[in-house]
Design a protein around this nucleic acid. Sequence first.
DNA 1: GAGTGGTCTAGACCACAAT
DNA 2: TTGTGGTCTAGACCACTCG
Lengths: 238, 238
Amino acid sequence: MKYIDIENFIMSNIKNGIYKADDQIPSENQLVKKFEVSRMTVRKAIENLVARNYLYKINGKGTYVINKDEKTTIFLDEMIGFKNRTTKSGHVPSTTVLKFQKKKLNFLIAEKMRLEKNEEVFYVERVRYLDGEPVVLEITYLPYSLYENITENDIKTSKYEYIKNKGFEIYSMEKEYSAILPEKKIQDILKIDSNMPVFKTELISFEKNGNILEYTKLYYNQNKYKFIQVLKNNLKNS
Amino acid sequence: MKYIDIENFIMSNIKNGIYKADDQIPSENQLVKKFEVSRMTVRKAIENLVARNYLYKINGKGTYVINKDEKTTIFLDEMIGFKNRTTKSGHVPSTTVLKFQKKKLNFLIAEKMRLEKNEEVFYVERVRYLDGEPVVLEITYLPYSLYENITENDIKTSKYEYIKNKGFEIYSMEKEYSAILPEKKIQDILKIDSNMPVFKTELISFEKNGNILEYTKLYYNQNKYKFIQVLKNNLKNS
DNA sequence: GAGTGGTCTAGACCACAAT
DNA sequence: TTGTGGTCTAGACCACTCG
């Protein structure tokens, strides 16, 4: 396959340090001439390497080599949220609430929350920023029956703080991890390339009695961040 | 954008149950006629929905709607490995060692393992199967100096069992989570579509004194599996 | 053999960056 | 204005599956 030849050419130049971090690689038209192929073939090779997290593109400017060392490390604490150790290193965290609405559940989400279709929930979209750059998009569904008088202000800082203050205790959590290419709307919010997959977590929080306290989807921006978790002791076998 | 119109057309048919799980959607040529666009435009829409985990393709046959309910649930135990609860439900696990070699480290991996370039390691590639279907590809680097007399048999079942039996204790673990589109070689091993991202974990295991016991990369097949983690109590704030 | 998706061509027009 | 990447066309040949 011709596009694999082009992938290999670019990759070997990255691995051998000929293309260094943040260097611009040859333009699509230059690669077209070099490999004597059509532009679509060159684009396919580049798209693959973008999706593989080796290249990034700037519209109207060019294609560049990703600088992994420059990525900000986000420490995930049991994967629940940010433990803002990052703030200690001078990064400024912030949160924006994009949407805060009362909504009726569609069938798909109702099933996940073990509620009836058309049951009412609060639908919340939040974006977490570091130094003004979007890190995570969070979409949360909160059952109306549990949080009747919630306001946008309640979840502007910490959602879990709010849930705790309401008198609920999260006893267990079910998390599903996946990797997807997000829809355009999410790409725009996170300011990521159109071929860059995101790391996604879906979670459901339970009270001890089995009540569902929330259903949440998290989309992590990998363009400028890497997501690290440190585990200590009590490790089990594989 | 025309390809977004096509994406929306297909998605609304999935969401409204017109295309049901495992249904074949219209062929590329049918969509070309319906939308009066070129085939490349149709293909871009379909590729996006494959990467978004809504469609899958079978070469020579057609494009189909993903059946999420049919996905086998894999329980991740502290994300270290399989806790084979799945076997209780009739699934048969197995492991294949693809590669077991003594190797000299390249610069990139040496840096991660805080070793020198050209230092010797055991390079191990293993695939975990369930009912003969590949679930995870694992690539492990084990420092030669720690495991001099290791054999392929030692890691045919449990790597962590072996490490423990060698007298080492994993005190902490650093994990990095990401989502990438894997290279063709990995796509083939995991038998996944060429536009399907994978969930990737990189981890380094430490002894209490800071010694590095392993560097491991894990690639999870999302085609037929979903990866769930259940956490109990001791949850912290976000 | 007919239909499917996989790869590829040789053009085109556009929005966007930089000069 | 020039060069870049983003979208799109109207073809083509191929390997694969299935009846």
